[in-house]
């Protein structure tokens, strides 16, 4: 079965437990779709060896 982007958003919203108004489903779908498309560009990068961090450790030097 192929879902439209709006149907996919409606189903995802149900799964995560939020209610999206019918008249706002299109906008939410556009926002999600554009982000996923934009981040597809990162797929070309070799990110496998990188460990994500929230706060970077401080450098030992004290700036310029």
């Amino acid at each position: 079965m192929t879902w439209s982007k709006v149907e996919r958003v409606r189903e995802l919203a149900r799964l995560v437990g939020i209610t999206i108004a019918e008249d706002e489903l299109g906008e939410v779908a556009d926002r999600v779709d554009s982000l996923l498309r934009e981040l597809e560009k990162l797929a070309a990068l070799d990110l496998a060896p990188i460990q994500p961090v929230t706060v970077f450790p401080e450098e030992t030097d004290h700036g310029a």
């Binding site: 958003v9 995802l12 919203a13 995560v16 939020i18 999206i20 706002e24 906008e27 939410v28 926002r31 999600v32 982000l35 996923l36 981040l39 990162l42 797929a43 990068l45 990110l47 990188i50 460990q51 994500p52 961090v53």
Partner: peptide, 22 residues
């Protein structure tokens, strides 16, 4: 709508973005 959209971002995408940040 912005936060609702963000609620639906898959973890794989979030994780990729966190790595790209580094």
């Amino acid at each position: 709508t912005r936060l609702q959209a963000a609620s639906l971002v898959p973890f794989k995408v979030y994780n990729r973005a966190m790595k790209a940040r580094v």
